[in-house]
Amino acid sequence: MVKTKRIAGFLGLPYIFWAAAFIVIPLIMVVWYGLTDENGGFTFANVAAIANPAHSKALFMALLLSFIATIVCLLLAYPLCMFLVEAQKTSNSFLTMLLIVPMWMNFLLRTYAWQSILEKTGIINTFLTSIGLQPLRLINTNGAIILGMVYNFLPFMILPIYNALDDIDKNVINAARDLGASSRQTLTKVIFPLSLPGVISGITMVFIPALTTFVVSSLLGGGKILLIGNVIEQEFMVAYDWNLGSGLSLVLLIFIVINVIVSVLTERSEEDYAS
């Protein structure tokens, strides 16, 4: 028995080294570069650079657009998941069709395709002018970026909410109805509170990729609307200012850490509830 335990220990060694070399050390390097200048001296300037108007505006825009996109995802996903859970039979293969299969079309192409739908001579505007209406300015707007975020990250909202709703014991809902609760009361007092961990998990899973994206904004924002992700990407790939780029990444890391704390806390309270 002692021998198998030792073998098990050896089996883990490659991954332990791998995780140290490629997960932990790279993150330490972001912190290191973020807190030093090009000569290697300690400085707080790279992080403080977030206060620079161009950077703080990009952060504010990213926070605003990703916040709206997260809310829209929640409003779209919740009723969908309720309908899907009620329908029962469809469940697994339908969810795969809805969420996983689209991933086999490259996500850049899928996002890019929205250009053809939204642009000045695109599908929507061609339709509007053909029925005698004025064309709308849709592409290169904040709305287009929000749409792109919702389109790309909606699956991350659907999955946890669907699982949470699917896990609710049907007898609890029936009991509420038997005890005289209306459908609305059942929804607000029973179903929604029980699905809350799934909702919070969905919110945290949509918010971070939306907040940090540079792809959606550069494909659908026409390069005019800069988000914090675009600023960081340009610092690394165009300006080659790795210290500044790392400093701004540290600001993002703060939001990511807050996000992780929120999801860990809700998971813990869920466990308390279960026990």
């Binding site: 790279p26 940090t212 790795w242 790392s246 990511i256």
Partner: peptide, 27 residues
């Protein structure tokens, strides 16, 4: 601790993971 570290790439933003690799390979 190991599971916490394993979760990092999934919870972290792709752009931060990306730049962290870039810095590692550059250094």
């Amino acid at each position: 601790i190991m599971m916490g570290i394993t979760n990092i790439p999934m919870l972290n933003a792709d752009i931060v993971t990306g730049v962290s690799f870039m810095l590692l390979f550059l250094t």
